[in-house]
Simulated scan of single mutants.
Amino acid sequence: MLTIYRDEAGSVRESASLELPSEVIWIDLFDPTDEEKVFVESRTHIQVPTIEALSEIEASSRLQVNRGVIYLSTPILGRSDTPEAFLSPVGFILSPTVLVTVRFVKLSTFDQVAEQIHHDPSLATNVGVFTALLEAIVDRGADVLEGLRGELDQISRKVFRGNPSHRSHTVRSTDALRMTLSAVGAIGERVSQARDVLLGVGRIASFARDIGEGWITPEFRVRLRAVLKDVTSLNEYEAHLSGKVQFLLDAVLGYITIEQNNLFKVLTIASVVGIPPTLIAGLYGMNFKFMPELDWAWGYPFGLALILVSAIIPLIWFKWRGWF
């Protein structure tokens, strides 16, 4: 889909001229077709990158300058407010006269800036739109990190609060711990995705500010500098969340290990307690002719009592040692 901003009359699409009118400041390509790419390239005289080119991870591919035009790309979170969040590449092509964006997923930040264009005087230029997009992405990243912090706090309360000595403490059950481990791992993945977005935004903001020094006004240079400061602070906050994620992962794994040890403890006690009775029963099960207990009137009760005592004594010893 091709959207041209500050071209309400649609003159650009209808005109046969290969030059863009001065009022056009932003061309947004959303999952563009080949025809739309050719149209934009013919009007702007720039090359629209493919999704493969935008997905390159090396800095030389994400930050380029060609004939005074700045080519930038960074991953952006799609469905950022859901557990199914994913990274999708976004391209920014910034020239002294127009901004071209290329994306392949619906983004609320782009819709937000598109709505602001109609009533915000600061978005009267292509650099203003570019700066507003970066600010919206950073604000959205902050909201995502705050939401993840809330989810981590909720998990932390479930894991660490309550009396773990009560067997009714279901939060410490194996199934609950397994689900908690999956939830913490998913949050860790989303924190990692947010870090990739913030690092990408920081790189392109710094690069654009330095390369476009000749035609980016001081007002927007100051705003780009503020974007960089916000990215720095959010990176520190993200590092804090990453540490908390790792702490919760270690804690949950520790509880799982404790549950497994408790299971092994029960099996160990049962096996040790069962050894003496088995030994006694095996002793009196031997078919020797001369066994004095065979002639006793109370031989059978004596054997049963001996088996019972041999089982109770290890239990008393384990209780004294505090095993259960």
Rank of each mutant, 00 (worst) to 15 (best):
D81P: 00
V252F: 11
A59R: 13
M179R: 15
S60K: 01
L234N: 06
R79Y: 00
K289L: 04
I307K: 02
I4Y: 02
I93Q: 00
Y237P: 01
P89R: 10
D34F: 15
V69W: 04
S310Y: 11
L20C: 10
A305I: 05
S310P: 11
L198F: 09
D143Y: 02
P32K: 01
G274V: 03
S17I: 05
D143W: 02
R13A: 13
V144Q: 01
R43S: 10
A205H: 03
R223Y: 10
T44V: 12
L2G: 06
P83T: 01
I25W: 11
S17Y: 09
L306R: 14
D28V: 00
V159C: 04
P164I: 12
E189V: 03
G200Q: 07
A270M: 10
G285Q: 03
E35Y: 12
T101D: 01
V231E: 00
L107S: 00
T217H: 01
Q260C: 10
Q193K: 04
G141F: 03
T170P: 02
L63M: 12
R6K: 12
L77D: 00
R221E: 15
S233L: 15
M179S: 14
E236Y: 05
L267G: 06
A281P: 04
A239E: 14
L315E: 06
W26Q: 00
W296Y: 12
A85M: 03
G254Q: 14
T109Q: 15
G214F: 10
T174I: 07
E189W: 01
E219P: 06
I155K: 01
L148N: 01
R67K: 13
I256L: 15
A186E: 03
S88C: 10
G299L: 07
L253H: 07
